[in-house]
């Protein structure tokens, strides 16, 4: 319970960064924090007391195992997150080339 709440607090820190920061780099970093928090929350839901990782080993008795389904979904989610981060970095670089600033209040003209 308290673990869930701490993880949710991490998500809110990321949300705070996205909402209040004016620096494009800081916004990209806050989106990264949001992604970490969501991934970690999914894996926290999957944990089961007194159980081992969902990988069979030779000659080992199968005990309780944790839920493998969220692990499989988060595995793809991490890769996609890196792809989107790279794309955001490319957009920020292009904006810096044109406006020579990372401050989003200075980037007014969105056309052209």
């Amino acid at each position: 319970m308290i673990v869930y709440l701490l993880c949710f607090a991490l998500l809110l820190v990321g949300l705070y960064g996205v909402l209040t920061k004016r620096d494009l780099i800081k916004i990209i970093l806050s989106l990264g924090i949001l992604g970490y928090a969501v991934n970690l929350l999914l894996i926290l839901f999957a944990y089961r007391n007194d159980s081992i990782y969902p990988i069979l080993a030779k000659g080992k008795e199968v005990k309780q195992m944790v839920d493998p389904l969220p692990q499989a979904l988060v595995l793809t989610s991490i890769v996609i997150e890196l792809g989107t981060t790279a794309m955001l970095v490319a957009l920020a670089i292009k904006l810096f080339e044109k406006y020579e600033t990372f401050d989003i209040t200075q980037i007014r003209r969105l056309k052209g």
Partner: peptide, 18 residues
Amino acid sequence: KVGMSLFLVVWVLAGSKT
């Protein structure tokens, strides 16, 4: 797929003169 695409992304990002 993952290896090639991630390397190419860094290649392009590092190559942009900014």
